[in-house]
């Protein structure tokens, strides 16, 4: 089946000379949830902004359901809903007015029943006559989602939808995104949170330095990202890993002064306790130990290096 979004050789250089995108190729499959992960400044928002028509591409092409975003912009944009990263809302309008406005802007005739359903789905119905400025941050975020959904788009872009949203609300948002996906909407979200991608995405794309580093099915990538390291500083350097410890995925570094154990946080048992017991049994003493809780951004950096 033809991808719903096809991006080819997309480049963007801003007037300041900053090159935000350096030739992005990306296919997004119909009906999937794609999580776009990447450090700050990687080009996530620029990529989304180009597809949605807010930023002009320097070169390359984007088609949305077969419609070129520049030549056939009206058809392309009609299919897309965008939830921006910043909480940019009108202040003085009511929730109802601002969501109805969005529907009209995207060329749909007024339909109070649709707006009512969207507001109820997002638990905003009892706030429909409240001015947007009087709402909490989490509610404003939901107003932005309601605005993006008001014209019943086939594709939804969520730029860091759960930034600054409390845990409970984040759960609710994930559920809502799941329901949207079940109704056939293709969803592209950017995030910093690995658990968010883990919870929802079908595919994960990693973007860094203006390039797509990889796009993979979630299961394959999680295995890669799920690895953690335990580093033990040894009192006495070792020449080789003792035969008794051969069953563990161990490596020596720093000239034998450090013993590195790779484990999988996805597993229920990490094996750390067993390893430390065995070390004690064999008289291998250590002065310090640390686990490498590398942040997602560090993992990105290592991925970038790996591919470079």
């Amino acid at each position: 089946m033809q991808p719903i979004i096809e991006i080819r050789g997309l480049e963007k250089t801003y007037a300041s000379g900053f090159q935000a995108l350096k030739g992005v190729d990306l296919d997004i499959r119909r009906g999937e949830i794609l999580a776009l992960l990447g450090p700050n400044g990687a080009g996530k928002t620029t990529l989304i902004s180009i597809v949605c028509g807010i930023v002009r591409p320097t070169s390359g092409s984007v088609t949305v359901d077969g419609h070129d975003i520049l030549r056939d912009w009206r058809a392309a944009r009609s299919l897309i809903g965008l939830v921006p990263q910043e909480l940019t809302t009108e202040a003085f309008e009511s929730v109802w007015a601002t969501v109805s406005f969005s529907r009209g802007l995207f060329g749909k005739p007024p339909d109070p029943a649709v707006i009512e359903r969207i507001l109820k789905d997002l638990s905003l119905w009892d706030k429909k006559d409240t001015k947007v400025m009087a709402l909490s941050g989490g509610m404003k975020r939901r107003v932005l989602i309601a605005k993006a959904l008001s014209h019943e788009p086939r594709i939804l872009f969520l730029d860091e939808p759960t930034a600054g949203v409390d845990v409970e609300l984040r759960r609710g948002m994930w559920e809502m995104i799941g329901r949207l996906r079940d109704s056939g909407v293709t969803i592209i979200l950017t995030t910093h949170y690995i658990e968010e991608a883990e919870e929802m995405a079908d595919s994960i794309g990693v973007i860094s330095g203006g390039r797509i580093i990889l796009v993979e099915e979630k299961a394959a990538l999680m295995e890669k990202l799920g690895k953690r390291l335990l580093t033990l500083q040894l009192q006495n350097p070792l020449d080789a890993i003792p035969a008794e410890l051969a069953g563990y995925p161990l490596t020596l570094s720093e000239g034998g002064r450090e013993l590195v154990y790779q484990f999988d946080t996805q597993q229920e048992r990490t094996g750390i306790a067993g390893l430390l017991r065995k070390l004690g049994d064999h008289g291998i003493t250590y002065t310090n130990l640390r686990t490498n809780e590398s942040s997602l951004e560090e993992i990105f950096v290592s991925l970038v290096r790996e591919r470079a």
Partner: peptide, 17 residues
């Protein structure tokens, strides 16, 4: 006002000439 508050994003992303 929409430029100042940032809500202009919606107008720019809408199928509006």
């Amino acid at each position: 006002m929409p430029r100042y508050s940032g809500t202009i994003y919606e107008l720019l992303s809408a199928p509006v000439s």
